[in-house]
Amino acid sequence: MRNIHGALVLLILCAFGAQAEVSEVYDFDTRAEEQRYQNLIAELRCPKCQNQNIADSNAPISKDMRDQVYRLMKNGATNDEIVGDLVGRFGEFVQYKPPVDKRTILLWAFPAIAVVVGVAIVAGVAIRSRKREKEESALSPEELARVKKMLADKDQQA
């Protein structure tokens, strides 16, 4: 029964979003390696407690995954190789950074596209307004220049 309770607690922790707890400590030669490890495990998602990365998750599977990350790092694997290894076992789901491919190109390119389209629309609005200003202007060019100057001066004083 004790084990069943343990599993229930785990279930509760997963279901309601839960806390982080450091459960093991690894030794690193340099502070940079330690930071690299921390960054890596923060970018991998726990397949069990799915709202947590494996750095924060208490699920046993997260511990196994951290072990694997550490082991591969010690073997000299690159970040891509380490992430690739875990993706090969658990699927694309475990990487928080979606790969750039034809399914996700829209996702990655969206901000750039939106900003370009948006700026183009604003430019259109501004140009149209300027055109209207010219068309509707019933004043002679000299008068217009005077008014413009007056307005500009006034604006700067305000």
């Binding site: 726990c46 397949p47 069990k48 699920a59 046993p60 599977i61 196994d64 694997q68 076992r89 658990f90 699927g91």
Partner: peptide, 12 residues
Amino acid sequence: KGSLGFDLGVYG
């Protein structure tokens, strides 16, 4: 140790 489980991608 769950080694085959890990290779199979078992998460629970």
